[in-house]
Amino acid sequence: MKYNKVRWGIIGCGDVTEVKSGPAFQKIENSELIAVMRRTGELAKDYAKRHNVLKWYDNAEALINDPDIDAVYIATPPESHKEYTIKAAKAGKPVYVEKPMALNFAECQEMISACEAAGVPLYVSYYRRALPRFLKIKELLENKAIGDVRFVSTTQYQQALVDEGGSKNTSWRVQPDLAGGGLFFDLASHTIDMLDFLLGPIKAVQGFASNQVGNYRAEDIVTGTYLFENGVHGIGSWCFSAFEDVDTNEIIGSKGKISFSTFGNDPIVVTTTDGSEGFSFELPQHVHQPLIETIVADLTGDRDQCPSSGLTGARTSWVMDEMVKSFY
């Protein structure tokens, strides 16, 4: 089904929707945010008032079944992604779901099957696939700026997260039953999905995960290797209890390398025997907006499908599952 205007409802209007995503639905042509939901009704009401949203709910099914809503954005923790996606699909409504797509790859497959059976599209909020910064890296690779790609290396680490007062962290992001794993699932998912976008699908994975500090039950360090379908090799290390914050990716080719961060906005640097060249980009105010624009364009029939689908999102979940399966 194609829409003249996509009327959105948000399930879970928490922090991520305040600036990163929520306002974008109102600013995109042929798009409108008309309802939000949060389990605590007063918080949903407050969000609706502050963002000029017509309706608010404290019940997800009521929002999903609202006849004025065409498509649903699920911005809850991963624990409820599968449930709400399947309910929205059965209501005949396209779904845009937060990352990681679900608690695990098996749940992703159920979500994909439900949306396929209902004939509705499923999108995942790996928004870097639509940001100019990462589109530039893809262009550089396609234009052989570093020759043929040989391998990619990722090193990401940060200081341990603790609650105020130094107590053990209790954020949902480090509770496996709510998040699928620890901060690896929350943060590394962006990098792994971005590498899928830049280099293609990963076909084989080996990984190790541990909890070295004991601040929470989930893993706090993951290291691994992977092989892409096109023969490129990859190595990655993610540690969430180190002494400083580091975020570095390098794609090494036969004639040079591309260096960049996943979360920072420092310049992309291309290095060859001829020297180095940097490329800088301003992040949009609402980082989800470029990706949501592709979704709206898809749903209104103006262009090809969004680059972040249920199929691509599930591939990232499979890689993460493989890297931590010995720990769980």
Rank of each mutant, 00 (worst) to 15 (best):
F240E: 07
F263Y: 15
E110M: 05
F281L: 06
A60Q: 05
G256Q: 03
H190E: 14
Q159P: 12
I74H: 06
V97C: 14
G253S: 01
A48R: 01
N215W: 12
V270G: 04
S31V: 06
T170G: 03
G256L: 00
M111L: 12
D220M: 02
K136S: 09
G9L: 00
N65I: 07
V120R: 00
Y157G: 01
K49R: 09
L299N: 04
D46V: 06
Y84E: 09
K325L: 04
F240M: 06
E277Y: 09
F208C: 07
K90C: 01
V232D: 03
P201V: 02
V296S: 06
R173T: 10
I295Y: 07
D196F: 12
P307D: 07
I112L: 13
V222M: 01
L63H: 00
F134S: 08
T300W: 01
P307H: 02
S309F: 11
C115Q: 07
E83C: 07
E110R: 01
G92D: 06
A130R: 04
M101I: 09
K144T: 09
V324N: 01
F151N: 10
D220S: 03
E322H: 10
P176H: 00
D302E: 11
Y123H: 14
V124E: 14
I137A: 03
S254N: 10
P23N: 12
N104S: 12
D247R: 00
L54K: 12
A118L: 05
M37H: 15
G264L: 03
A242Y: 10
E110C: 08
D304T: 05
Y127N: 12
D193V: 13
G224A: 04
I258L: 04
R173M: 14
L54D: 08
N30A: 03
Y226V: 13
T40C: 08
V319T: 11
D163A: 15
L291T: 11
L283K: 13
W56V: 03
H288N: 11
G253Y: 01
E322P: 04
G9I: 00
D186K: 13
V149E: 00
I192A: 08
I64C: 01
L122K: 06
D46S: 12
F228D: 03
P77N: 15
D46K: 14
V296P: 09
C239Q: 08
